[in-house]
Computed example of a mutant assay.
Amino acid sequence: MSGQKAVQNGKAFESKIFAVLKQIPGVNVIKDIPYPSIYSAYSTKHKTKMEFRAENISLTFETLDFQGNKITKTRLFNTLNIECKYQEDSGTTDEKYPLVYENALISDAEATLFVYEDPLKNIKRGALEFMYDKALNSGERLIVMDFDSFLANVNKQYALELVAARFEQGSELFQANHPRLKMLDSYSRKRFNQAMRKNEQCGEFFDEYLDCQRDFHNFIARHGVQSRDYLPYLNNLRTLRAGITECLPNLN
Rank of each mutant, 00 (worst) to 15 (best):
residue 25 P to D: 04
residue 33 I to Q: 08
residue 126 G to A: 14
residue 63 T to Y: 01
residue 190 K to A: 11
residue 237 L to M: 07
residue 115 V to C: 01
residue 22 K to D: 13
residue 30 I to E: 11
residue 108 D to G: 10
residue 250 N to T: 13
residue 229 D to Q: 11
residue 197 R to I: 13
residue 106 I to K: 04
residue 22 K to E: 07
residue 170 G to W: 03
residue 226 Q to D: 02
residue 235 N to W: 12
residue 15 S to N: 07
residue 173 L to S: 02
residue 81 N to Y: 14
residue 71 I to F: 09
residue 24 I to E: 01
residue 195 A to C: 11
residue 235 N to V: 11
residue 217 H to V: 07
residue 235 N to E: 15
residue 250 N to I: 13
residue 69 N to G: 14
residue 204 E to I: 06
residue 55 E to F: 09
residue 126 G to H: 00
residue 250 N to Q: 14
residue 162 L to D: 06
residue 78 N to P: 07
residue 3 G to F: 09
residue 172 E to H: 10
residue 219 F to C: 01
residue 107 S to I: 05
residue 41 A to I: 13
residue 83 E to D: 08
residue 13 F to G: 04
residue 120 L to H: 15
residue 8 Q to Y: 03
residue 50 M to Q: 06
residue 47 K to Y: 08
residue 129 E to L: 11
residue 5 K to N: 09
residue 14 E to M: 04
residue 240 L to N: 01
residue 123 I to D: 02
residue 67 Q to T: 06
residue 43 S to N: 04
residue 116 Y to C: 01
residue 191 R to I: 09
residue 63 T to I: 07
residue 214 R to G: 13
residue 30 I to T: 10
residue 153 N to M: 08
residue 155 N to I: 00
residue 178 H to N: 15
residue 132 Y to R: 11
residue 111 A to Q: 01
residue 72 T to G: 14
residue 230 Y to D: 04
residue 54 A to Y: 00
residue 57 I to Y: 02
residue 190 K to T: 14
residue 172 E to K: 03
residue 105 L to W: 03
residue 15 S to A: 05
residue 101 Y to C: 06
residue 133 D to Y: 14
residue 223 H to E: 15
residue 151 L to T: 00
residue 187 Y to M: 03
